[in-house]
Design a protein around this nucleic acid. Structure first.
Length: 757
DNA sequence: GGGGGTAAGTTG
DNA sequence: AACTTACCCCCT
């Protein structure tokens, strides 16, 4: 009896890998695919594409309950061994099912359209066969291949279970309709009047195919009628031909940069690049990347957002072969790019997190803007991409580069080689809002008037979109809240609307207070872009005021052309190309960016201030920051240009408070429609965690989530903070929780609201 | 008895 | 995640 192995197959679903028997044709025909290949497996009443991640030996006679895989889609692995190990490590690290990690991180190849065909094998039950094939049963030959969808409902499952079904699946070749030549010109193309037809036919023969009659007419410089005549006379015809591979987008190199590359770059398995500008940090990597490519190795460069992907790609494209992969890359191009990775010519792949598993022959991994919270996946496995990049670099044993204006304490703790680029001290002015003057302080109004008088530009950062944080009754102080969330509805005056920025609920702003019927409803608390734009228009009426946020992305071409004006925006403006004439950057309320209660909030606010300056590169604009807490260390570090000292201080503080990377942190959230259900589950789980060994030092909570109810669900949360190597053990009871509440685990959470004392 | 909704269980 | 089954409410 032969001992065979089952295929361990991962599907892009929140599930662990499943075992399948190899397809029954395999023993004689197709070779066993390697791990990393895509395979087609039966799934529910159809088939799905999954990833072969390994094999599981089966004892003789075992595995009879397993189903057979249908086929392998690849002959060469679609993912590298390193990528497979990253999947595995991320799954273990985030406590997420591996299939979820696959769904989050593999942006191509598993959703391909499949043709699924079946035929009924020579069988014992004539009725079944005839019902399927639509002809009398033949005991010796299988029925012909037909689309699985043609089977009556439920029949496929039945036949599968009886082992009477042959299945195959393949990716249909994409075709396009093209004009092709059929034969050489003959007598009926002679003569002057038919010169155009002759020319068109000759041209078509040299081209091979043409997209359309119009395209050929244009190319051969003849009338469309001439081409149509060729088709009519049988010299050419339209035919379905294999579609050409999607062309790869060419990255336009950016114009020569003024950045001076003065510092030499240290080498090491881990390199931290800090200070300078975004462009300077990228350009300083050129010598390293050049060397990698010369050695025949490709480089993966990750950026947290689409615009930074484009920016970095353009900077590098001036000297190196570069491709990009991000959310905007079309499916066809992603697939083509994936194939390209394995080809001989090394290149630099600049991409968002979607590029993480690209099957490059890697020589180095670079993470730009390593501290960006955009790297934290907000759903699914919630991995922080720089962490996954660290796993990748370790798996292929290549150097890792982490760059940001302020190095992350996590990076510094790992004692990297360092490249700290000079950052000119900013011209900064801090305004203490405790003295009044909000939303626009007297100082801000004064400098805005200077901007107006000198015909310059200003950028004002607002803490949110809309008019105000809430609509409030002046008589009874009632704040109109969201029916689904414990949050005030944001007031949008322009649209006379109240909106929840969390769940999307929206209604018309009422005229009277819903609580007391008073007509005294008014905007309250922090101003949004709408309010600030209105104030700015009032105090500097001659300036062109533009708004830029999710609600209103105004056309900025006048500002881009250098015309005087003010841009009032949310942090969405950080993704804009720089404006040419900015002399003032104003932060109308820094506090909302710090007081989120996260232990990383200060460093993120520091990065925000430095990133704002990138809207006016090389100009050293005045940065005016309005705040209720002007004495904060981050503002001192910022105004005095002490980034390095600040980074060291942050690291020291992490050590003192036993925070990451000196301890591992996990948030366990329990939510339910009923508050009591969520609370009960959280209390029970806290008990279970303590019983399993969690000490009072390690376990914090349970407590209600900072926003107790969201989207109609109440949440309670627990935090575990413990030595990294002990976290998995401490979390064990949470992993086996089966109860009425929904449980979510977030490893290394970045929104731990109000936690650090 | 069944439409319409939600909750719970299963998928190999 | 996608899908099936179980269950409840309400209505004819």
């Amino acid at each position: 009896m032969t001992v065979q192995s089952a295929w361990r197959v991962l599907l892009p679903l929140p599930l662990p890998p499943f075992n399948f028997l190899p397809p029954h044709g395999t023993s004689g025909g197709a070779p066993t695919p390697e791990p990393g290949c895509r395979v087609v497996v039966p799934w529910q009443s159809g088939v799905r594409v999954g990833l072969l991640v390994g094999f599981e030996p089966l004892r003789a006679g075992a595995g009879l309950e397993l189903r057979e895989a249908v086929s392998a889609l690849d002959t060469r692995p679609f993912l590298t061994q390193a990528a497979l190990s990253v999947l595995e490590r991320v799954a273990a690290y985030t406590c997420a099912p591996a299939g979820m990690v696959l769904a989050n991180l593999l942006p191509v190849g598993l959703g391909v359209p499949l043709v699924h065909q079946v035929r009924v094998l020579a069988d014992i039950d004539g009725e079944v066969s005839s019902a399927v094939a639509g002809r009398p049963a033949d005991a010796s030959t299988p029925s012909t291949w037909q689309d699985a969808a043609a089977l009556p409902l439920g029949r496929l499952e039945l036949l599968r279970r009886q082992g009477l079904l042959d299945e195959r699946a393949f990716v249909p070749q994409e075709t396009v309709r093209r004009l092709v030549p059929l034969r050489e010109g003959e007598g009926d193309l002679d003569g002057a009047p038919r010169a155009g037809q002759r020319r068109a036919l000759a041209h078509l023969w040299t081209l091979g195919t043409s997209q359309s009659a119009a395209a050929l007419a244009r190319a051969a410089d003849v009338s469309e009628g001439a081409v149509r005549a060729l088709v009519k006379k049988g010299y050419a015809e339209y035919r379905e031909v294999a579609a050409p591979p999607a062309p790869l987008t060419v990255v336009a190199p950016s114009a020569a940069s003024s950045v001076l590359l003065t510092l030499s770059v240290p080498e090491g398995p881990l390199l931290s690049v800090s200070g300078g500008t975004r462009a300077a940090r990228v350009l300083h990597l050129l010598p390293l990347l050049r060397k990698d490519l010369a050695a025949g190795k490709s480089v993966l460069v990750l950026a947290p957002e689409q615009t930074y992907v484009q920016e970095a790609a353009s900077l590098l494209a001036a000297e190196l072969p570069v491709h990009t992969l991000s959310g905007t890359t079309a499916d066809g191009e992603r697939l083509r790019l994936w194939e390209r990775c394995a080809e001989a010519e090394p290149f630099v792949l600049v991409g968002s997190y979607l590029a993480l598993l690209a099957p490059l022959k890697l020589g180095r991994v670079v993470v730009l803007e390593e501290g960006s919270s955009a790297y934290k996946l907000s759903a699914g496995c919630r991995i922080f991409i720089p962490t996954a990049a660290r796993f990748l670099a370790a798996a292929v044993d290549v150097p890792l580069v982490l760059a940001d204006t302020l190095a992350a304490p996590e990076t510094l703790a790992a004692t990297p080689a360092r490249l700290n680029l000079p950052t000119p001290a900013p011209r900064a002015h801090i305004v203490d809002l405790k003295a009044g003057g909000w939303p626009l302080s007297a100082d801000l109004v004064r400098v805005l008037r200077q901007v107006e008088a000198r015909g310059r530009q200003a950028v004002l950062l607002a803490p949110r979109r809309g008019f105000s944080a809430a609509l409030c009754c002046t008589d009874c102080e009632h704040v109109i809240g969201c029916p689904n969330c414990d949050l005030p509805l944001r007031y949008h005056r322009e649209r006379r609307a109240l909106r929840c920025h969390q769940c999307g609920f929206q209604k018309r702003a009422p005229d009277l207070c819903p609580a007391c019927g008073s007509p005294g409803l008014g905007p309250r608390r922090a101003a949004g872009t709408e309010w600030i734009a209105a104030e700015v228009a009032r105090v500097v009426p001659k300036l062109n005021v533009k708004r830029y946020d999710t609600d209103k992305r105004e056309d900025l071409s006048e500002l881009r052309a250098g015309e005087p004006g003010v841009l009032v925006a949310t942090t969405a403006c950080l993704r804009l190309p720089p404006l040419p004439n900015v002399s003032l950057v104003g932060v109308t309320l820094l506090d909302v960016f710090i007081s989120l209660g996260d232990f990383r909030a200060e460093e993120e606010a520091y990065r925000l201030l430095l990133n704002l300056a990138e809207l006016a590169p090389g100009r050293r604009p005045l940065t005016l920051v309005q705040t209720f807490a002007p004495e904060s260390p981050l503002l001192r570090a910022y105004t005095e240009g002490l980034g390095e000292a600040f980074a060291a201080e942050l690291l020291e503080r992490r050590a003192r408070f036993n925070y990451p990377p000196f301890a591992a942190l996990a948030k366990v959230q329990l939510s339910a429609r009923e508050a009591a259900t969520a609370k009960g589950a959280a209390v029970w789980l806290a008990g279970a965690l303590r019983t399993a060994g969690a000490t009072d030092d390690e376990l914090l909570g349970p407590s209600a989530a900072p926003v107790a109810r969201m989207r109609g669900r109440y949440s309670y949360q627990l935090f575990l903070r413990t030595a990294s190597e002990r976290l998995a053990e401490r979390l064990t009871p949470a992993l086996s929780y089966r109860g009425a509440a929904r449980l979510r685990i977030d490893i290394d959470p970045r929104d731990i609201a109000g936690f650090l004392e």
